[in-house]
Structures are given as structure tokens and as C-alpha cells.
Design a protein around this nucleic acid. Structure first.
Lengths: 149, 149
DNA sequence: GATAGATTTTGAATCATTCTAAACACCAAC
DNA sequence: GTTGGTGTTTAGAATGATTCAAAATCTATC
């Protein structure tokens, strides 16, 4: 069920890993191929199960390691970036969040209606939205006590 | 340190809870007041600790219950909505995600550059972004096998 | 003041993730 | 071909946020 990587894909993998002095390993090949084979945003556990079909001895920790490596070298993106504790806020107006990576603080960013409609406009037909979540990640310069709602 | 609720705030609380046949309790008042007192997107644990200053016997589970109740009746928003397993995708082009609540599936939504710049334009001065995450939540109509990248 | 329903409490259970230490693989130098 | 080093994998324990279950407590109503 799991395809091997194509020439091109293996090269991509090899090149991306090379930057951090990291190597292509059978485990990494399998995990990467799983990701490419079915692009349904699998969880770690799903990746693990699919990968084990071709490599029964593979361990869960390795899958975590591989994925972390891939994210680190820019091969793969994490969909639910926010794996820290859930946070709560009482600001009910439509707003985005800006997370300052240096301080860990979260700021509210007002969301004008025109931005929301721009966003809604990029959805294909048939997609109906209940809510949109937007979070910026970055840092603030000369931040003179912005409100941190 | 923790303020009591104002007349108006207590009414809001009372009204929001009333819809689900739920009542205002001392614990809920405290938790709500904690949220209003310092709008810094606290974690459950932070809420717990602040609330215990005014109500030492309060339990963590109650804080979880209160927050869940508040979210349920629309009083409060969860910042890190996505508390399920982290998901991964190999699509490196800038794209948003659309989570279909009925199927649980995640679709990629292409993000044109003009949308990105619109988004960046709403940031106040001094905010510098490394990355923007956008996720839509909703459902799809007559979804004829959209690509689910 | 008894009963029913919602709420809170405590502590145990769960689940994703991270950590740790030992085993392994590969390669270069000897 | 053995030795040493580095990076990788493995298994299992540990952590940490969250949820669950059951008993205790409240509140309103009869």
C-alpha cells in the first residue's frame, strides 16, 4: 500500500535533511512516503499505523522523531501548531491572535469586516464557515505595552 | 485582588447561563471575574490559581467545568480551539485549512498573496510576523470529493 | 424538611507527547 | 577489520493537560 519514494522525492528528502547534517534513513523514507501517499492530514498515530504496514518494527517514538525532524527542516507543516495549554479569552468581537514568540504573550488583533469577507471569498463553492481562526506568530518591536487582550 | 462582578456583568453571566437552564454559582462568578479581570488569555491552570486566591477550596475540575460551560453558552472563546492530536501535512505552499465538522476531514485552501498582505496590513506597528495560521471551521455542501490536501 | 436536579469535589483514568537510557548503524581513522 | 564517534532508533517510563466517575453538596420546590 505504501509507495516508495520517487527519485525526485528522495532527493528532496535527502537535500532537506542534509542542511542539519541529518541523514536519510529507512524509517524517515517510510514516514515521508506515508505523508505523501495520502494527504489527509494524518495524526501521528495514523502515520504510525500506516507506516507499520511496510515496517512492522517501527516505533512510535521514531515517528515522533521523524516528524519533528521534517518540521525542523521545513519539509512538512504542523497543522495544529498550538500544542500548549488551551487558553481562554472573553473578547467576543471577531479578532485574531498574535502570539509573541519571545514573550509568549498573546495579543488580540481586531478583525475588520472587510478582512473577514476577503477570507470567506477564497473558499470554494460548497464550503460553509461557522468560524475562522487566525493566529499570527512572530515578535513585537519596541512594544510599548500593547494591550494584550 | 479579584474584583466582584459588576451588576451588568453578573446579568450577562446570568442571562447567558439561563439559556441552557444553568445557574449562576459562586464558582462561576469567580471564574468569570478572573477572566474579565486580566485579559491575558490565561490557561486553565492560571485561571485556577487566580481564582483560588478568592476561593481557596475551588477545584481544578470545577474550573474546567466552568470554562466549558462558558464556551458552551458563548460567553468565552477558546484560543487554542484545536485540542485534538496534532496533524501534519506536506503542502508547503501558503494555505489555510478548512475543517469539516461533520466528517472531521481537513481540506487545504489556497491562500492568494493578496489575502496574505491584507492580513498583514491589519497588524499594528511593531508587530512582525513569521507565520500566519488560518483555520476555517464549518461544513461542506454537496461536497463532490474535494481534494483533501 | 424531603426530593429532584444541577453543581462541585476528589481522585483516578486517559491520551498525546516527551524523555531517558540502552542498543544500533554508519563511517572515518587507525 | 577493529575502534570511536555521531546520529538514529527503540522500549518503556514519565509528564502534563484533560476527562471521567462517583460521592458529596446545594438549591429550589413541594
Amino acid at each position: 500500500m505504501i509507495q516508495n519514494l520517487s527519485e525526485h522525492q528522495r532527493e528532496q528528502l535527502q537535500e532537506a535533511l542534509a542542511h542539519g547534517g541529518q541523514k536519510v534513513t529507512p524509517q524517515r523514507e517510510i514516514v515521508y512516503s506515508v505523508l505523501l501517499a495520502k494527504r489527509d492530514h494524518p495524526t501521528v498515530d495514523e502515520v504510525f499505523n500506516r507506516a507499520r504496514e511496510s515496517m512492522p518494527g517501527l516505533s512510535l517514538a521514531t515517528v515522533y522523531n521523524c516528524l519533528e525532524t521534517f518540521v525542523g527542516c521545513g519539509l512538512v507543516r504542523q497543522v495544529n501548531h498550538e500544542r500548549e495549554s488551551t487558553r481562554y479569552c472573553p473578547n467576543l468581537a471577531p479578532h485574531a491572535h498574535f502570539r509573541d514568540e519571545s514573550t509568549g504573550r498573546v495579543h488580540d488583533i481586531e478583525l475588520p469586516e472587510h478582512v473577514l469577507s476577503t477570507l470567506r471569498s477564497i473558499l470554494p463553492n460548497g464550503f460553509e464557515t461557522d468560524s475562522i481562526e487566525i493566529s499570527f506568530h512572530g515578535h513585537t518591536k519596541n512594544s510599548r505595552n500593547h494591550n494584550s487582550n
